[in-house]
Design a protein around this nucleic acid. Structure first.
Lengths: 151, 151
DNA sequence: GCATATAGATGTATATTGCATATATAGCAG
DNA sequence: CTGCTATATATGCAATATACATCTATATGC
């Protein structure tokens, strides 16, 4: 994903694609869908993931399959094969008790990260608020305000 | 950083370290500090970055220097050398107008991501609420308040 | 036979990061 | 002068996650 070139939202507005790499947080989203929806197979999950994804980029199926494999080696999901229906066999994954715990730990981490981001976004907004109306914001700033005419 | 093994917060609580890789969002944090603080050099920045970092992991100096180099090739910062003082020369970086724009685009992206995360964390919490009582945290909640005894 | 949908899996390249290491300037103790 | 420490920048290397492409296989419809 070359920086600044997003074919999905090209030119329209800032999107996570255009900002370069962002982790897609595939692991917690997969765990959530598996607990919310119940046991499911990858191809089925890939449709439902979009509704719960944290970014505006679709979760790649390759990444999904690899994440499911990794989650199984870590003991957070268990799997079985469903060959009952017609068509190719389906690899069914279900969340384990450890996986449920891990999902809640992820929620704690994401909650902290979310709060930090909200504070950061506020900080950026404050940079602009200083341009008009009552300024202050920087504690140690004792410069003459009338010098700041950068608008 | 091997998954699940965090030497910084080992065993204490879930931290972003223990959840595997998370992008540290070095780029927007560096841009913010450069605009908030004014032109600065890397070694100086590394101290101030911790206060504005989005995760509980310190930003690696190697990552910082590389980010500054990348920001310069993208035209978001400009640089010069300060050899006036004693000690090693200092590579001074300052944010450019394009960089200021880019920082605000980053803020938009992070604001969206933050909102998605908050919604996700709520969704995970709802998984547990169903187990006891009939609590409902949605806006149109007309549930009995006396069920909520979380204090 | 051929195209298409379903379903899983892998190959490869790139980006960011963590940790270690290399280089150089300068101050200070002995 | 030698050795140690602090300051300051930069690179090497491995690990991880991802984007995109490709491969395999089963089944249906034409």
């Amino acid at each position: 994903m070359p920086r600044g070139q997003c074919h999905r939202h090209a030119g329209k507005r800032p999107c996570s694609c255009a900002m370069g790499n962002l982790y897609r947080f595939v692991e917690p989203v997969v765990l959530f869908v598996l607990e919310h929806h119940g046991p499911a197979y990858g191809y089925e999950l890939s449709k439902e993931l979009a509704e719960h994804a944290l970014t505006d980029t679709e979760i790649d199926r390759g990444a999904l399959y690899r994440t499911l494999q990794r989650l199984e080696t870590m003991g957070f999901v268990t799997s079985s094969w469903d060959t009952s229906g017609t068509g190719p066999a389906r690899h069914i994954y279900g969340i384990s008790p450890d996986g449920q715990t891990h999902l809640r730990e992820w929620a704690t981490v994401l909650d902290n990260l979310q709060k930090s981001m909200a504070a950061f976004v506020d900080d950026v907004a404050v940079l602009d608020q200083g341009r008009q109306t009552t300024v202050d914001s920087s504690p140690e700033s004792d410069v003459d305000q009338d010098v700041l005419t950068s608008g």
